[in-house]
Design a protein around this nucleic acid. Structure first.
Length: 851
RNA sequence: GCCCGCGUGGCGGAAUGGUAGACGCAACGGACUUAAAAUCCGUGCCGGGAUACCGGAGUGCUGGUUCAAGUCCAGCCGCGGGCACCA
């Protein structure tokens, strides 16, 4: 039995697509556009099947939409800056640039073997000055627009590597590579003012109809909008006031103390004259930031001796503490404590013997007996007590009344607090985009003049010592101040690499333009119609990009505010993990299974299989592409990745699964190429009279076209594949008896499958006698009339229990259906001679007889 | 703690409130073959019948709504994810 030669066919069709420029596209305002994009990869070394699942989904959408007549933009590029390149440089004595570019070459070649319908002319890599020069310009524009600024802030500092670490790089309070306990350090850093758009970023989530609810919810949580009030407490014997934020102004009469963050201005002020407080603050700064550290940390405070005056009654004085649980970054960095209705405040009050006054009486509680012991009442149902003018109100009304009074007294106002903080973009790293500013002793911070852009990275850097190579480069940072000409210093920090990925989707529209974007191109192509990527970017990349698009719009670069009209988050590809007796991770191909099902390594040593995990280099549970594509071809891999699980769920890679897909590829291939009786020629007319079997196949064909089209619209690739397999089964069933109907069915199957298995389908399309390329063919249309059956099978139930089925003409009258149902022997037996009380007929579906 | 999602055969998974288990994987049995591979056919569970077939139970658990519930509602159990000293 002959086998489909995937390798030869795939090479052949890839060459033809390339020669005929099938996937090259241009801006064409006369035609409807569709922009499909998969999150571009970091060039870590090699592609694995996890990457490919993502790109295959995008490719199906791109090919499908093209067949539907859209002008489809489907580009690919490289998120090329980042830490791993530097780590490789430190470990392997290879320059980050070389390492990155050679990885890109490898991965590009791998991608090309997958037959993805990309416009490769548009490829970009973010590490090229031709790319990053534009973001330097954007940064300067942000600076002018007040969207970028520099401030001192507390950062994660790795004392061994001498660098700031991103939050993701701090694992349980320790640097991910050095293992050193991360310290908090106060450093001057560049920030982008994402908080400026906090409100908009939440509100317009509602307009993103084709985004997963889950992602929108995560962004909403992350931005964290809280309605409340800002209240100013006068401080006894002091001129300044203490600003606090609260979401519970209704509980102001329950206040027992005020507390400020250790890094609060007032705390620092007092500490300068109070060594004990200074020591306390230092201790707070030592505290770990890991989840465990926070959970076990005791609530501690230091009484400053200062008294705050209650805004509603000057006779009430509250002690002001510096407390370790108050965060400077949120609200005003200061709170009032209401122990009866906040658990932390209660813990704190019990420890420091502060009064606990309940001010909200839970529903159904007796005021005389209501007491707070060790558990605060934090619900917002209840009635205000002990609160003078608020007494008797429910919580919601009391909040409003309290805010009204605060505003009348000019002691504050209703306001909204955000959890979202400005985006710190400075990194003490070499392999990133240089931040285009100069520090001058006289002029301060001076932006690099536009004529001097790009500020390019020097190539001659060393990695033999820890820290930022740019900082110790002998000449690079020494420049003349563009304003006064005096010797000055270049900024040696580089941008967070999320900076590059925040605008790359727009650059694809005009990837070689001299300035960032051609308006004609971005106005045509943007927003991205379908974006596809992993859920791990639900907040970071997707939020940054939404912010960036707004910032670019404000600076006149773009005319849109939302970059991605549709988003799909696909699941991960997982694989078992393997470890030998020494605990070393093993690659799947190093593990063999003996006939008793036990696992061994190459030397015969026992191997234990661990849990199913996301494919990752460190655990070695990756399935490389080469092995799979060499053995089965790209199409088989694509089919398996699409068919085995719903796309949003995780997929477990199994060898048996890929073999099943390979069996199907061959089955379809034989269906066309190995026939005892040849199919009628292409374009053969459908006979007027069709046998029942022929009619049935025709119906299946047109039903399948309609269903698969619907499935692809809704990203249900696994179901689309199942439908096509069903049609294949139907084609098999009719055997060589079918003529024109069988050709019609096979052609439909091939065309429907083409987005998923493009090479095989081109091969079959050609074998079926066609001259055209499927890659540029239009999508098949279902004939609704042909998809409808003349007869339908009705299920017949007695008391809701299935008792049989009956084949009847479509749209038969209810009475006829009832009669036919009652005539069934199984129904009569179930009725046991009783007469039906009621019969429900759902046309063309079901008859339910109730006795 | 708060918010969200999900529980269906041995496995991945299908089912606009209307015949649960499509499609596939695995396993078992059979056909073809000197043999193997490949290919093809059959098989969800329990009880009875060699077989056709007949009966029953069944979508995490307990209730409810309905002629009819995997699907809707309430409560519980379990798993997964996000956020969290956020005032």
């Amino acid at each position: 039995m002959a086998r489909y030669n995937a390798k030869a066919a795939e090479e052949k069709w890839q060459n033809i697509w390339r020669e005929r420029r099938c996937f090259d596209v241009e801006t064409d305002p006369q035609r409807p556009k569709y922009y499909v994009l998969e999150m571009f990869p970091y060039p870590s070394g090699k592609l694995h099947v996890g990457h490919v699942r993502n790109y295959t989904m995008g490719d199906v959408v791109a090919r499908y939409k093209r067949a539907q007549g859209f002008n489809v933009l489907h580009p690919m590029g490289w998120d090329a800056f980042g830490l791993p390149a530097e780590n490789a440089a430190i470990a392997g004595k290879v320059h980050p640039k070389e390492w990155t570019l050679s990885n890109i070459d490898t991965m590009r070649a791998q991608l090309k073997r997958m037959g993805l319908a990309y416009d490769w002319r548009r490829e970009i890599a973010t590490c090229h000055p031709d790319y990053y020069r534009h973001e330097q310009k954007m940064f300067l524009d942000f600076l002018k627009a007040g969207l970028a600024y520099r401030k001192e802030s507390w950062v994660n500092w790795d004392p061994v590597e001498n660098t700031v670490l991103a939050n993701e790089q701090v694992i349980d309070g320790r640097g991910w590579r050095s293992g050193a306990a991360v310290e908090k350090r106060l450093l001057s850093q560049w920030f982008l003012k994402i908080t400026e758009f906090a409100e908009e970023l939440v509100v317009s989530l509602k307009t993103l109809e084709r985004w997963p609810e889950r992602v929108k919810l995560m962004q909403e949580n992350w931005i964290g909008r809280s309605e409340g009030a800002r209240v100013f407490f006068a401080l006894k014997g002091r001129r300044e006031k203490l600003e606090i934020f609260t979401t519970r102004p209704d509980t102001l009469f329950g206040a027992a103390f005020c507390a400020i963050a250790p890094s609060h201005k007032l705390a620092e002020q007092i500490a300068s004259r109070d060594p004990k407080l200074a020591a306390f603050i230092a201790e707070c700064n030592q505290m770990g930031t890991s989840e465990a550290a926070i959970e076990t940390a005791e609530k501690r405070g230091y009484d400053t001796g200062i008294k705050a005056i209650h805004p509603f009654d000057p006779a009430i004085e509250l002690p002001v503490y510096v407390a370790n649980f108050v965060l400077m970054e949120y609200g005003a960095g200061a709170i009032f404590g209401c122990p009866a209705h906040d658990q932390r405040d209660l813990d704190f009050a019990r420890k420091y013997h502060l009064p606990v006054t309940p001010v909200v009486l839970p529903p159904g509680q007796d005021r005389a007996h209501f007491q707070i012991a060790l558990e605060a009442y934090t619900e917002t149902q209840g009635t205000l007590i002990n609160s003078r003018f608020l007494d008797g109100l429910d919580v919601a009304h009391a909040k409003r009344a309290a805010i009204k009074r605060i505003e009348e007294l000019q002691a504050g106002e209703g306001t909204i607090a955000w959890r979202l903080r400005d985006w710190g973009v400075s990194r003490q790293r070499y392999w990133g985009c240089p931040i285009p500013v100069i520090h001058c002793a006289k002029c301060g911070i001076v932006p690099v003049p536009e004529k001097d852009l790009p500020v390019t990275l020097p190539d001659d850097v060393t990695f033999d010592q820890p820290g930022n190579p740019l900082d110790r480069h002998p000449t690079w940072k020494h420049v003349a101040c563009p304003q006064c000409g005096c010797p000055a210093l270049r900024e040696t920090d580089t941008f967070d690499t999320f900076f590059e990925s925040s605008w790359y989707f727009a650059r694809f529209c005009s990837p070689r333009a001299a300035h960032a974007f051609e308006r004609r191109d971005v106005d045509y192509w943007l927003p991205v119609d379908q974006y596809i990527g992993g859920i791990e970017h639900a907040v970071l990349h997707l939020l940054y990009s939404r912010f960036f698009t707004r910032a670019l719009e404000r600076c006149g670069y773009l005319a849109i505010t939302e970059p991605f009209a549709g988003l799909f988050t696909q699941g991960m590809v997982c694989h078992e993990t393997y470890q030998d007796t020494a605990g070393n991770w093993l690659f799947p191909e190093e593990v063999q299974r003996d006939d008793k099902g036990r696992l061994h390594d190459a030397q015969g040593g026992p191997v234990t299989a661990g849990r199913l995990e996301k494919m990752s280099k460190s655990k070695r549970n990756v399935v490389g592409l080469e092995t799979i594509v060499d053995a089965f071809g790209a199409d088989t891999a694509r089919l398996y990745l699409l068919s085995d699980s719903p796309p949003e769920r995780d997929l477990e890679w199994t060898d048996a699964g890929i073999e099943g897909a390979w069996r199907y590829a061959n089955r379809l291939w034989r269906l066309v190429t190995e026939r005892e009786k040849p199919l009628p020629p292409a374009g053969v007319a459908m006979p007027k009279e069709l046998s029942a079997a022929d009619q049935k196949l025709r119906r299946a064909t047109h039903q399948t076209i309609a269903l698969v089209t619907d499935d692809l619209e809704k990203f249900r690739f696994n179901r689309a594949v199942a439908r096509i397999r069903e049609l294949t089964n139907a084609i098999d069933e009719i055997g060589d008896a079918g003529g024109a109907t069988q050709r019609e069915a096979i052609e439909a199957a091939v065309r429907l499958l083409a987005p998923m298995m493009p090479h095989l389908c081109e091969e079959l399309w050609q074998a079926l006698g066609h001259q055209t390329l499927l890659a540029v063919e239009s999508w098949p249309a279902a004939d609704a009339a042909l998809a409808i059956a003349e007869t339908v099978t009705l299920a017949v139930q007695v008391n809701g229990k299935l008792r049989g089925t009956v084949e009847l003409p479509r749209d038969i009258g209810d009475d006829d259906a009832k009669e036919a149902a009652l005539a069934l022997p199984t129904v009569m037996r179930a009725l046991e001679g009783k007469s039906p009380r009621k019969t429900i007929v759902v046309p063309n579906r079901i008859v339910n007889v109730v006795v």
